[in-house]
Amino acid sequence: MMNTFLALSDHDLEGELNKPNALRLYPPRGVSDAYDIEILWAPFDFVNRDARIVIVGVTPGPNQARRSYKAVRMAVAKGEDPQADLERIKAEASFRGDVIEPNLKSILEHGGLAEGAGIEDIDNLWTKEASKVHFTSTIRYPTFINGELFNNQIDSLEHPELRKYVETCLAAELASVPADAAIVALGQKGPRIVRHAAKAAGINPRRVVALPHPSGSATGAVRDFLSKNRTRSIRPCRCMLCDRTRIPKGWDLSNRFQMHDLTHGKGRARDAR
């Protein structure tokens, strides 16, 4: 698929994001899907076999796909082999965005998972610390349903093709990382699916840790998690409610301060705004 992608113009590539064709992995040409499921190839094949933590979302979105395509084109423009740089390309594209990044950093910090994985600086999650992380999804490649991003609108384990991705791609990825690596499943429906993949891989499903999804549509769940649960971080927690200097500009979390401080005890939060 890499060669097919490289032959596409930017205009054609944008068309692929709207209606997969040349880069479509499923369904095959001339075949329709009962739920109008479409799976689009993007360079998310790399598996970090040395990861200390695995972060599992639902599926990469269009913005993540664009980032990955851009990273490949930049590598080619520099005369580099993109196949040899899939680790960096995947890290640069996974779970990125103005909302998802601060939310993800906060839940990993607050849950003690960043510290447990040996991530010293959560701000370097996608750069210097990326070697400790394996970013993935229940469905490895960008997936759409009725033209919209797939977000578990149907049970993926009840759909033959989606189930195949869970039981083959995801299970193989989970089996490839060290046995003591944390496995984080994001969202309400994600943990059940990831535990199913773990069982398929012969892994104890109790290794799977459930956290709220850091996307913008689930920001309320993220803030509930940060305010209603005590931090599991032994070091000073760098989530945006424990360290309020880290609240992104323009975000108002003041309605969470009281609950957070009651949960953690007076004086827990630093530099309250």
Score class of each variant (00 low, 15 high):
residue 28 P to H: 00
residue 134 H to W: 00
residue 268 R to K: 08
residue 255 N to C: 11
residue 65 A to I: 11
residue 210 A to H: 00
residue 265 G to S: 09
residue 268 R to A: 07
residue 225 F to G: 05
residue 76 V to T: 08
residue 201 A to M: 14
residue 155 D to S: 13
residue 160 P to I: 05
residue 76 V to H: 09
residue 136 T to V: 11
residue 260 H to D: 09
residue 14 E to Q: 08
residue 169 C to F: 10
residue 73 R to N: 07
residue 99 V to K: 08
residue 218 A to Q: 12
residue 62 P to D: 15
residue 124 N to A: 15
residue 68 S to V: 06
residue 219 T to Y: 04
residue 72 V to K: 02
residue 232 R to V: 01
residue 39 I to Q: 01
residue 19 K to I: 09
residue 53 I to W: 04
residue 62 P to F: 10
residue 6 L to Q: 11
residue 14 E to K: 11
residue 69 Y to K: 14
residue 174 L to W: 10
residue 23 L to K: 00
residue 194 V to F: 08
residue 171 A to K: 04
residue 127 T to Q: 12
residue 94 S to W: 08
residue 31 V to S: 02
residue 37 I to V: 14
residue 201 A to F: 11
residue 143 T to S: 14
residue 194 V to K: 08
residue 248 P to Y: 07
residue 193 I to Y: 13
residue 197 A to V: 07
residue 99 V to S: 06
residue 264 H to V: 06
residue 78 K to Q: 15
residue 139 I to E: 13
residue 267 G to S: 00
residue 129 E to H: 03
residue 42 A to V: 11
residue 131 S to Q: 01
residue 115 E to H: 03
residue 70 K to L: 10
residue 235 R to G: 09
residue 17 L to Y: 06
residue 104 L to R: 07
residue 232 R to P: 02
residue 105 K to P: 04
residue 187 G to V: 12
residue 120 E to A: 15
residue 25 L to R: 03
residue 64 Q to E: 12
residue 248 P to R: 06
residue 108 L to G: 03
residue 25 L to S: 06
residue 71 A to C: 04
residue 189 K to E: 12
residue 200 A to T: 11
residue 97 G to H: 05
residue 17 L to A: 02
residue 80 E to V: 09
residue 95 F to C: 05
residue 23 L to P: 00
residue 63 N to L: 07
residue 81 D to Q: 00
residue 249 K to F: 10
residue 78 K to R: 15
residue 31 V to H: 01
residue 264 H to M: 07
residue 75 A to E: 14
residue 23 L to N: 01
residue 262 L to I: 07
residue 140 R to V: 06
residue 166 V to C: 12
residue 209 V to M: 09
residue 218 A to D: 14
residue 106 S to L: 02
residue 28 P to S: 02
residue 243 D to G: 01
residue 264 H to C: 09
residue 209 V to A: 09
residue 109 E to T: 08
residue 264 H to I: 04
residue 217 S to R: 05
residue 223 R to A: 15
residue 222 V to A: 02
residue 83 Q to S: 07
residue 203 I to N: 04
residue 149 L to V: 15
residue 255 N to H: 12
residue 225 F to K: 05
residue 227 S to Y: 10
residue 199 K to L: 13
residue 29 R to S: 01
residue 62 P to N: 15
residue 171 A to V: 01
residue 54 V to H: 05
residue 106 S to A: 07
residue 161 E to R: 08
residue 261 D to L: 13
residue 242 C to S: 10
residue 64 Q to C: 05
residue 137 S to G: 06
residue 238 R to F: 09
residue 122 I to K: 05
residue 268 R to Q: 13
residue 6 L to P: 08
residue 205 P to Y: 09
residue 77 A to S: 11
residue 39 I to H: 01
residue 75 A to V: 11
residue 117 A to R: 00
residue 147 G to D: 09
residue 271 D to K: 10
residue 255 N to A: 14
residue 43 P to V: 13
residue 13 L to T: 07
residue 197 A to E: 03
residue 58 V to W: 12
residue 79 G to H: 05
residue 141 Y to I: 06
residue 55 I to E: 03
residue 219 T to D: 06
residue 101 E to F: 11
residue 66 R to P: 11
residue 161 E to Q: 06
residue 232 R to W: 02
residue 124 N to V: 14
residue 244 R to F: 03
residue 188 Q to I: 15
residue 91 A to H: 06
residue 169 C to V: 10
residue 117 A to E: 01
residue 193 I to V: 15
